[in-house]
Design a protein around this nucleic acid. Structure first.
Lengths: 260, 260
DNA sequence: CGTAGCCTTGACCGCCCTCAAATTATGTGG
DNA sequence: CCACATAATTTGAGGGCGGTCAAGGCTACG
């Protein structure tokens, strides 16, 4: 449970203590899922938000021949399906890519306190805006960039997002999904992702090995990717944020540390 | 001005007369734009929605080398920037692809009447959901489908969306953007779009010539594209909708008929 | 220790890109 | 209404990035 509090702190540091309490109060206890579980059963009952607490999830859709396209990742601290609470429509699915702990936010609890907590409402809208901006970056990425640029951009983004919730250590972080999960996000084949990872390694830009990402040359990697972290609306640049974050809270837990 | 009324009728046919009046009342007079104009000057003053009345616009973003990626089209009746009114962020731009007439919806007028017109609010959320679903389709399209599938899917979508606002005639419609505009939406080169159009023509699936799209074999085209129009939330399938629409309103105007 | 999934590597191929030029619309001023 | 300039479409030849297929090695987990 301290993990949840830490996440709320990291991701919702713009909020005051009172509003963070409202948020915590609306959250259910964490649920645990294995890999490749459907996280949002679309026959769902009440509208609800979902927050990833540990592990990585992905929104995805499939073609008729079974090919999967991952439309977005969700890291710890990410809230998804904000919009589904307004529009009811769920035409895409969310899957756990690793073991995942997830909490549900009772929509009606949040609505009830919306008047008293305008900052909370604003914060959720900000998260939606970030998700949309990220989607646009992914469209740009898959559409117009080469394999090495796509991969570089994705790794930059992953590192930056994880650093925002205190899950990086120095120039590295855990990134425990498979190369197939990367391929389906970048619209490449797993084979080519593998080759491109080697290329990044050879160029001494970054390594991804044994589920651990290490940024070897951030400026060069950013340049290759044309990565401009502004769309993520982080409070600090990834590398500064990292040191600040580790100072204020020891990283006593990590994604998918102890599955069910 | 009758054009605006017709659009409100077609696109907002789920609304009652009173709510359509509210919508009309919040709209400014149409503004006219030439081709390739920026439609949303991000230094904008008050938050506002925008509705395309005639012509076609596109949300886009560019790489550093100048390559353009079109992230979505906006046809007559489409409302965009709903979300910007909540989250303030405008990190993508919208451009007219043809001559365009556009009206602005005063956000504060809509907010003021939100309580009295819950159906209107619901309708806007539905439009947002459709836009999101369409974005996901485009991600699938660009990421995992071949050139001929992408193009087929895009043409199916364009035809369906135009039929929903009464801008198709039989199995054809005006589609007055350039092959470059298609290429930038599909993440292809204009040259290859051209070749793929010929391929569609040779297969007798569809033709796009002199700014006019003609669907020659809808079932076969749907099959190639794996097009499932459900995500557009139309009230009727494109070809049925077409006949109903032309019955209730003679198509006395078309996109970019008489520019400024 | 066995098995299944993931990663790695190689050889080959094809879809789409690139570059270039010809041809055809589109639009503008005389 | 025509001459001209500009943009868009069309066509060709050639090349490369990433896909496909296949096999072998590694790791995790029971």
């Amino acid at each position: 449970m301290t993990t949840v509090t830490q996440l709320v702190f990291h991701r919702f540091s713009r909020l005051g203590e009172a509003e963070r309490q409202v948020l915590s109060g609306a959250m259910t206890a964490p649920q645990k899922f294995g890999r490749h579980c459907e996280l949002v059963n679309s026959g769902g009952s009440l509208p609800a938000l979902h927050m990833v607490l540990s592990g990585i999830a992905g929104r995805y859709d499939c073609l008729q021949n079974g090919q999967r396209q991952i439309l977005g990742y969700f890291f710890p601290g990410d809230v998804f399906d904000v919009r589904a609470c307004f529009s009811q429509s769920t035409d895409s699915r969310v899957q756990s890519l690793t073991t995942v702990q997830m909490a549900t936010l009772r929509w009606h609890d949040l609505l009830a306190s919306a008047k008293r907590s305008p900052g909370l409402v604003r914060e959720f809208w900000r998260l939606v805006a970030v998700e949309d901006a990220t989607t646009r970056q992914w469209q740009l990425n898959a559409g117009r960039r080469s394999a090495i640029q796509r991969l570089s951009h994705l790794l930059c983004e992953c590192f930056a997002r994880l650093s925002a919730v205190g899950l990086t250590e120095g120039d590295g972080c855990l990134l425990p999904f498979s190369q197939t999960d990367i391929a389906d996000a970048l619209s490449l084949t797993p084979v080519h992702v593998n080759r491109t990872l080697m290329e990044l390694r050879a160029a001494e830009l970054a390594t991804l090995k044994a589920r651990r990402l290490t940024i070897l040359d951030a400026p060069a990697l950013y340049a290759v990717a044309e990565f401009e972290p502004a769309y993520l609306q982080l409070k600090a640049a990834p590398f500064e944020a990292r040191s600040e974050v580790t100072a204020t809270s020891p990283s006593t837990w990590r994604p998918s540390a102890t599955p069910a």
